[in-house]
Write a protein that binds this DNA or RNA. Structure first.
Lengths: 243, 243
DNA sequence: ATCTTTTGTTACGCCCTGTTACCTAAGCAT
DNA sequence: ATGCTTAGGTAACAGGGCGTAACAAAAGAT
């Protein structure tokens, strides 16, 4: 994909310049901004893949700005703060920040988080538009990419519901990558398996149903593992035979 | 196909700009408009594939405008409204809106709806104007494009009713594309097989009858699949031998 | 006019899917 | 270890979508 375009928002000129330079030196396009007006200007002037947002912007509050941004468009935001107090962290997450990092930060850690958020959002995007018909193989199982059924290692046909197939597709597209329930729900909605906003424990139940069909022992899942506090991972290699 | 050209109609400059930018960033051509005059100007200056229309346009009412637009030309319209009241929603649909979304909206959801409407209208258009007489082959079956019968893979003649033939034509014209019951009904009426507005479960029954004639095992359809909550798909490649 | 064929409607039942509730397992502090 | 708290598994339930048999209405055919 194209070079990621970041926006660095900080009212302290020195910090702002430092971070901008740092991100540029590491291969990103970085645009500095100090005020909400500048943020908006940048957002209107071109694609922005990620915002590094200082929590403390003098008169303006970064958390509030983030809240407003997230209501309008889905730009990923990483909070940067000099105050590593936990309640701040919480406030940030509730508004919909994608991550949080405290000043002074380890530059490598910042890079890692930025890349993580970028690949995460990229992932969902790639997931959404992936519609190719291919045959997938995992742990002896086969899925032909279109039918609502899988072939077990012993060659048995196992019928899946549409929703289960959708979940399987999402997992197959993201092997070894832990997916949150929100990501799964979003992918299922957009890929058009069915509509319906995911509320409550729907994903848990769905995972359970799929496990009961493709796991040898659903009590001890080998394919779809639970990442406690995070979500689910499909922890098997997947080979794709394009057709 | 060409890049879709959208028109964003909203009297709030901020909202208008934001939505315009957002659609542009996602690969569309987006033209902002605030008044009915601007709408008309844009419509006259070039092709418009879809209008995102704010319901509340100060003095003018979006619903009224939509009604006038639809009388003149068949531009798809998605309503955007800050008021998610149901009667508003209904009013929108009755005028002929193609979809409806409430502010503040999930950007991904908006994108999904826009894409859905665009492919839907593109599809029906191709469906309506396809009238050529050709011979179609699918999964060993043959349909000569005019008679009310098909030849089975083993060469048997299977008589179809007019309505069943119409459904088959619609499906043949749209392989691998899920069609809603409304789309099917509309296509059946427009292609002139018979008239009659589709009410209730007519399409379901019709699909069932066609399945019983051309599916080896109607209980496990291989040709006409059900897309739960959506409609039906003809999931077989179709070859067309022009005559 | 009567019979036959086509086509839409209704009703019933099955299956899919999200919600709820309860229980167990995993952390965590003491 | 023991008890407490919370996340996750899952059975049971409910609502709704879909297949389809049976009926009714409409259109031809004889």
């Amino acid at each position: 994909m194209a070079i990621p375009r970041l926006m660095v928002v900080d009212d302290d000129p020195e910090m702002r310049g430092m971070m901008t330079q740092f991100m540029r030196r590491n291969g990103f396009i970085a645009l500095p901004a100090a005020t909400e007006a500048e943020i908006k200007a940048h957002l209107e002037n071109g694609r922005i893949d990620l915002i590094l947002l200082d929590v403390n912007l003098g008169d303006e509050n970064g958390v509030d700005i983030c809240g407003r941004l997230r209501k309008e468009q889905a730009v990923p935001v990483i909070f940067v703060s000099a105050l590593s107090a936990d309640h701040q962290r919480m406030a940030g997450y509730e508004v919909g920040a994608d991550d949080y990092i405290a000043k002074p930060f380890n530059p490598d850690l910042l890079l890692a988080r930025v890349r993580a958020v970028l690949t995460r959002t990229q992932r969902t995007a790639s997931l959404i538009y992936r519609r190719r018909v291919s045959t997938f193989t995992f742990a002896g199982w086969t899925y032909d990419g279109k039918r609502d059924e899988v072939l077990s290692p012993s060659g048995y046909q196992v019928a899946l519901s549409q929703r289960e197939t959708g979940l399987l597709k999402v997992l197959l597209a993201n092997p070894h990558i832990p997916l949150t329930r929100e990501e799964i729900a979003a992918a299922l909605d957009v890929t058009g398996e069915t509509s319906a906003e995911a509320t409550g424990r729907a994903i848990d139940v769905l995972v359970g149903r799929l496990r009961s069909k493709i796991e040898a022992n659903p009590k001890e899942p080998k394919l779809i593992k639970t990442e406690r506090g995070v979500g689910y991972v499909f922890c098997t290699d997947v080979t794709v035979d394009k057709s």
